[in-house]
């Protein structure tokens, strides 16, 4: 067997991905810049702040060569605010609190503004839109304007726990943070469970269920459950979907679209 792991990244792989997030540190010693495979590392000159991938920051922290400055969201006040929104706010009874905006995405405060995605181009000429873990969502000075409400980044569970484990002396009131993170996780887990009712929508062709604001680890935990439920529902509803599609094909044929019916029939045949 070439590969024993199930489909979809597992919990340890998610933690591995979270270690690619960028954090801010204050180095305690000099280190010349390095060219890593994951990109260049700026020279470390104490006491100037530097931005490093989390795995490197943790490596330096464990050797007491640096202090990690906690991300903007990993303080008691913003976490308490997010917890209040998650548990009390009417709009988010059944939804997660909004995630930090992607570059080019308008802030949650002005809903009418249109998003304008700004792609980079890869060396092969394809478009590339940056996304977590490669956005600076866990640095001390976030790029987002200060009027934005605090929000949980995609890898909040992993980054929060890694920092609590390895750098709790750098955090403000780590016990309080630990409590808040646990509360947040429970509130959001309950939401994930109660959302099972709507999973039927993802079982139909062209349909889907929105999970905007979900964290990577939360997704990993429920991936097997959700895909299992949706695939089961799809199998149960496949004859109904088949009938609907045949009906639509018929309507198209009557409406003057000819030639598509043959294709559809062939397709239907192939599935059985």
């Amino acid at each position: 067997m070439a590969f024993p792991l199930p489909r979809g990244v597992t919990a340890s792989e998610i933690a591995f991905l979270a270690e690619m997030e960028t954090v801010t540190i204050v180095p305690r010693q000099r280190l010349e810049g390095l060219e890593l495979l994951g990109g260049p590392i700026e020279p470390l000159v104490p006491p100037r702040r530097a931005s490093l991938p989390l795995w490197l920051a943790l490596l330096l922290k464990r050797q007491r060569r640096a202090n990690i400055i906690p991300p903007t969201w990993l303080h008691p006040e913003p976490l308490a605010l997010i917890l209040e929104v998650e548990s009390q706010h009417q709009d988010y009874k059944n939804a997660f609190s909004p995630p930090p905006p992607l570059p080019g995405q308008p802030s949650i405060l002005d809903r009418d503004a249109l998003p304008s995605a700004r792609p980079q181009y890869t060396p092969d000429g394809n478009r590339y839109y940056a996304a977590p873990p490669f956005l600076h969502q866990n640095t001390a000075q976030t790029v987002a304007s200060s009027r934005d409400p605090p929000s949980l980044p995609f890898h909040w569970v992993e980054v929060g726990n890694l920092l609590l484990d390895a750098a709790s002396d750098d955090l403000v009131d780590p016990d309080q943070i630990r409590r808040l993170l646990k509360d947040l996780r429970e509130v959001r887990m309950a939401k994930m469970r109660s959302g099972v009712d709507v999973l039927d929508a993802a079982a139909t062709g062209g349909g889907g269920v929105a999970l905007t604001g979900v964290g990577s680890m939360e997704l990993g935990e429920d991936r097997g459950f959700i895909t299992g439920v949706v695939d089961g529902l799809r199998r149960i509803g496949s004859s109904k979907e088949q009938a609907r599609r045949e009906q639509m094909a018929e309507q198209r044929a009557n409406g003057g679209y000819d030639g598509t019916q043959d294709d559809d029939e062939e397709e239907d045949y192939m599935e059985f």
Binding site: P99, A202, G208, A210, G213, E267
Partner: peptide, 29 residues
């Protein structure tokens, strides 16, 4: 900015279902 979910495979007709907006996370086929 906006990405529609296509019904059926690419070979079939361009029939679209729900539309995802930027930053959204979805469970889809």
């Amino acid at each position: 900015a906006e990405v529609p979910v296509v019904v059926g495979g690419e070979e079939e007709e361009y029939e679209t279902g729900v539309t995802m907006r930027m930053g959204d996370v979805w469970v889809v086929r």
